[in-house]
């Protein structure tokens, strides 16, 4: 027998490997639907790494929520089932399991600086195909879209060049090929 327990609950499971998955969740766009989804994550202790929401089919009042989450494979499966059983949820698609999804996010990156730094920032922005959407004599705002790692890389490069702040949309994801979800 193992050491005597001091609680009437079973012990926590031993650590397992974590995975990151992107989930697309199609929901009825009704008041409180986002609160239900977020409340589920908060209440059950799941992680949200990124979250985007927008109505995508106006006539049917459907919104697409894209969530990036981490957990053990068993927890990820739970998350999908728990989402699926919410009454306003139509579909849950695991874009990571599906394997052929495109994921993009958009960031707006503000950089302040003069002289060489300013030139370097502009040069890098060009290399990353970021657009200048605002400029003053001492600052730029760049708009960049791409996969998360590309954006992370761009932001890291801007850091020593006078990075002021970043606004990011979070991830949107869609499947390649002709089929819809």
């Amino acid at each position: 027998m193992n050491a005597p327990s001091t609680t009437h609950y079973p012990a926590a499971p031993t650590a397992q490997k974590l995975e990151t998955h992107t989930l697309s969740v199609l929901v009825d766009n009704e008041p409180g639907v986002l609160a239900r989804v977020i409340g589920l994550f908060a209440g059950r202790g799941y992680n949200i790494e990124s979250l985007t929401v927008s109505e995508t089919e106006h006539r049917q009042h459907l919104s697409l929520i894209t969530i990036v989450t981490t957990g053990t494979p068993m927890v990820i499966e739970q998350i999908k089932h728990q989402l699926d059983r919410l009454v306003p949820v139509h579909h849950v698609v695991d874009m990571t399991l599906a394997g052929n999804a495109i994921e993009r996010e958009l960031a707006m990156v503000k950089v302040k600086g003069k002289g060489d730094n300013r030139v370097e920032a502009l040069r890098l922005a060009d290399a990353f195909r970021a657009r200048v959407i605002d400029a003053t004599t001492e600052s730029f705002v760049f708009e960049i879209t791409g996969a998360t790692d590309k954006i992370e890389q761009f932001i890291n490069l801007m850091l020593p060049l006078g990075l002021v702040e970043v606004a990011r949309t979070g991830i949107a994801a869609i499947m390649r090929g002709p089929e819809g979800m």
């Binding site: 079973p10 012990a11 499971p13 739970q78 089932h81 699926d84 059983r85």
Partner: peptide, 22 residues
């Protein structure tokens, strides 16, 4: 104790709620 729960059995689980399974 979950790691000692019915260690040798194959488990069939019938449930109307997929979130109860696994």
């Amino acid at each position: 104790r979950l790691d000692a729960f019915s260690p040798g059995s194959k488990k069939i689980h019938v449930d109307i709620d997929p979130s109860s399974i696994n």
